[in-house]
């Protein structure tokens, strides 16, 4: 007997939740308990009075599973709203990364030059290293990190995706 693999779709979900203890564990646990995938997850308080957080989850799965994920998330009491940005239409996805590169001489010059091309900011430097801060679509960050690999990449930290619908309306 073999395990069947089904066609997968990538979806970005924006979830507004009550900012209460355990909610992140509830959501992350829901994904593991039901065998769903999390590609990235970001969370931060977004309200003036610290009562509501926004979680962005990138997931993938067959369409029926994506629909189940949506329904299962909505079933959680502290979840106010689940918006499937991929389903809703044009949206922006942005991510921030910190990229540390160490090197001397030409390598260092080249790293700095490429950082400029990618509009990365230097947020820390020593005579033999830089930390670049880069924001953008995930593919852009992938590309930048790939270049830095050849120029003395030490470590990378990425936030995961934050997404939002284009246009005047909220999700």
């Amino acid at each position: 007997m073999h395990i069947e693999h089904r066609a997968q779709e990538r979806h970005v979900l924006a979830i507004t939740v009550d900012n209460e203890s355990g909610i992140l564990a509830k959501i992350a646990g829901l994904f593991t308990a039901r065998g769903y995938n999390i590609d990235s997850l970001t969370v931060a308080d977004i309200s003036e009075n610290h009562t509501v957080s926004r979680i962005t989850i990138v997931t993938h799965g067959p369409p029926a599973v994506i629909d189940q994920i949506h329904a299962q998330l909505e079933r959680l009491v502290p979840v106010h709203k689940v918006s499937d940005l991929t389903e809703l239409g044009p949206h922006v996805e942005r991510e921030l990364a910190l990229v540390k590169v160490a090197g001397r001489g030409d390598m260092r010059v080249e790293a700095l030059r490429l950082a400029d091309v990618y509009r990365a900011k230097v947020v820390d430097s020593t005579t033999e290293s830089f930390i670049f801060e880069i924001t953008g679509a995930p593919e852009k960050i992938d590309a930048f990190v790939a270049l830095m690999r050849e120029l003395g990449l030490v470590e990378v930290g990425r936030t995961g995706i934050v997404g939002m619908m284009r246009g005047a309306n909220g999700a």
Partner: peptide, 14 residues
Amino acid sequence: TVGITRHCTKHNYL
């Protein structure tokens, strides 16, 4: 308890 019962309750509180 909240952790253990998280996925077998409709909701739970501490």
